[in-house]
């Protein structure tokens, strides 16, 4: 099928089999390998991307479902001038990543929520719900929680 994905503001006309999942099309057809596959059954969240601004599991969505829609991946998180997203800085500052494999998924879950509501970092319950969305095997999560608070509330330290 012919589809068009707008990924990180760039238009990608693509020819894909209906069965190809969004994650594979992003990684292989769009060559955006920052979206990782950790479980391919919707649990771990490493593959989380934003579709029309909403965080979804790109392993449980078909690329054809996204025809004409807008997708944002970790590669599209930097600002227009190439400056890092506050969450990217905060993750580093809080040592919220070790192997880095799950990191793009956590960043996108948090970035989607933050774009929808810039005050989310002020609500500990909602931050917790974000961290509870994905799996990390290295950090023990607490640094990720602190990083989301830090990245959401510039100037604050959790």
């Amino acid at each position: 099928m012919k589809i068009t994905l707008t990924v990180n503001d760039e238009v990608h006309p693509l020819e894909v089999e209906p069965r190809r999942v969004l994650a594979d099309v992003l990684r292989e057809d769009c060559r955006l390998t920052g979206t990782h596959l950790g479980c391919e059954h919707g649990v771990c969240g490493a593959c989380t991307v934003l579709v029309d601004g909403r965080a979804v599991r790109s392993c449980l969505m078909l690329a054809v479902q996204c025809d004409g829609r807008s997708v944002r991946t970790v590669e599209g998180l930097r600002g227009p001038g190439g400056e890092p997203h506050p969450l990217q800085r905060a993750f580093s500052a809080e040592h919220a990543l070790q192997c880095g494999f799950c990191t793009p998924g956590f960043l996108m879950v948090a970035a989607g929520a933050l774009a929808a509501d810039p005050t989310i970092g002020e609500d500990p319950d909602r931050v917790r719900a974000l961290v509870e969305s994905n799996i990390c095997r290295c950090t023990g999560y607490e640094p990720i929680r602190r990083a989301i608070v830090r990245g959401s509330c510039p100037g604050s330290v959790a």
């Binding site: 060559r31 991946t73 800085r89 990543l97 880095g100 960043l107």
Partner: peptide
């Protein structure tokens, strides 16, 4: 700006794990 040298690439989608290599 980055606490670890690894951080910038891993936080921006620039990491290269085996499945990311294009051959």
């Amino acid at each position: 700006m980055w606490s670890r040298r690894e951080d910038e690439r891993l936080l921006t989608g620039g990491g290269r794990y085996v499945a990311d290599l294009v051959v």
